[in-house]
Amino acid sequence: MAALADTWQALLDWYFALPTAILVPIAGLLKVLAVFGWIVINVLILIWLERKFSGRLQSRLGPMRVGRPHGWAQTLADTIKLLVKEDIIPRGVDRWLYVIAPAVVFTPALLVWAVVPFTKNWIVSDLNVALIYVAAAGSLAVLGIFMSGWGSNNKWSLLGAMRAAAQIISYEVPSVLSLMGVVMIAGSLSLQGIVAAQHRVWFIFLQPLGFIIYLISTMAELNRTPFDLTEAESELVAGFNTEYSGLRWAFFFLGEYANLLAASAIAATVFLGGWSGPFLPGIVWFVLKTYFFVILIMWIKWTMPRIRIDQMMEVGWKFLIPAALVNIAITGLVLLVV
């Protein structure tokens, strides 16, 4: 036992004696692996949870057969099925766009996790511009959606892609502006700084209007019902991913759920105080708050009907953007008076 501890200590000593130029990439790689494991495990849980949850809301049972109890292995079985599906690249596609698109959708979902604080010390990199970074990384996915829609050479995909572009130009601005009130109060763009600024009261109580705008515009950016116009299975077959199958399609799916999880984590960090909380360790609070938003967004998804595209743009421009500007003005005024 002592020998084992000695070996471990020697390994640690050797590791920390490495020059910085080697140490940093290795540490970064280990962090990527940890975060990627976290995402994959959670996405497997989320897909199962979404099917069970929607089943409950519709008085069904959801998956029950594959794995007992309650079909827990359903998603694993689906993954294996997608892995061994025949790959079809239809004729007439723009090959480069078609092939790259899943990576462009999936990678930003991973990128957002580089700045999310899991606990006080568990954070990959505490960037001082984290909120801008999150907004920038989050809006990259639409490029992939547009690439897939245009590259597929399919009319449904084209319509889905055009709608994705309409959605991002309507909801990118309110989602950015709604966080401005939080930034003004916290005086920081770093997510750890924002968590620290909430040690007395959560920003959801100081910024209720900002929170509502953020929630709506985030759901729009995630392309979830009532804003799932880019897929809209009852109108556009499957929208931008009509021509995709097998693992290529699976990466769109993985990206969608990784984005849902990332957006929930950001919302929990910015509005609910992130990992901070009494009694329980930080990671437990972080997971609880993140899953609160996940369930909330799922609940809304399975309750609301899809809105029409012109209504969608009107909500964005005629309600959310003016409301976000008013929120900034009110926040500024209150901060000056107090």
């Binding site: 025949e86 790959d87 930003p108 990128l111 580089a114 990199s125």
Partner: peptide
């Protein structure tokens, strides 16, 4: 230094997709 991590995440995202599609390429009919 913190941006090095971001760059690693960026590369990892692309590698994950490439490895996944490579595996599917080996397995699929």
């Amino acid at each position: 230094l913190s941006w090095v991590n971001v760059a690693i995440f960026l590369i990892a995202g692309v590698v994950v997709v490439a490895v996944g599609l490579g595996m599917a390429w080996l397995l699929r009919p």
